[in-house]
């Protein structure tokens, strides 16, 4: 594509260096804010583990690890791997905590009622607001 006659001149008139700097900074700042505040899942998502409503740990889904969570009924084992988290073992008799499977999307949750442990994905977007079971 060939530049129209007088193009560079018109462009300079429209956007001076200082304007360009302000524009670039503003866009970068907005982009950063967007990613931080509205971005979903991925690197930003965390798993929150709570016992009896009190936060026990808040972990990024990016770092693989296994956490033992003590509760009134025993130990609940939480596994974090490959951007997901799950209840790997719980002392509950019906093992409903484990049955929730791998959690990765905002709002996904596994709860072990006897041990009063909740494992929940925190992300800007909640994929689910609740579950029926």
């Amino acid at each position: 594509m060939s530049a129209a006659a007088g193009g560079p001149r018109a462009r300079r008139a429209l956007l001076r260096p200082a304007d360009a700097l302000v524009l670039a900074l503003a866009l970068a700042l907005l982009g950063g804010l967007y990613a931080r505040l509205w971005g979903d899942g991925g690197a930003g998502a965390e798993v929150r583990i709570s016992v009896d409503g009190r936060e026990f740990a808040r972990l990024p889904l990016t770092e693989a690890r296994t956490v033992e969570v003590p509760g009134p009924a025993g130990i609940t084992v939480v596994e974090v791997r490959d951007g997901r988290a799950r209840c790997a073992a719980s002392p509950g008799p019906q093992h409903l905590c484990e049955r929730a499977g791998w959690l990765a999307r905002g709002g996904e949750v596994a709860i072990g009622l006897p041990n009063r442990v909740a494992i929940e994905i925190l992300a800007r977007e909640r994929h689910f607001d609740g579950f029926t079971y």
């Binding site: 484990e98 049955r99 929730a100 499977g101 791998w102 709002g107 996904e108 909640r126 994929h127 689910f128 607001d129 609740g130 579950f131 029926t132 079971y133």
Partner: peptide, 23 residues
């Protein structure tokens, strides 16, 4: 029970799998 909406969007509910894991 859900009333109203969430920011104009419906409330999204997962139905648990009766066998196996997840939704």
């Amino acid at each position: 029970r859900a009333i109203g909406t969430k920011d104009g969007q419906p409330w999204r509910i997962g139905v648990r799998n009766p066998r196996g894991e997840g939704v």
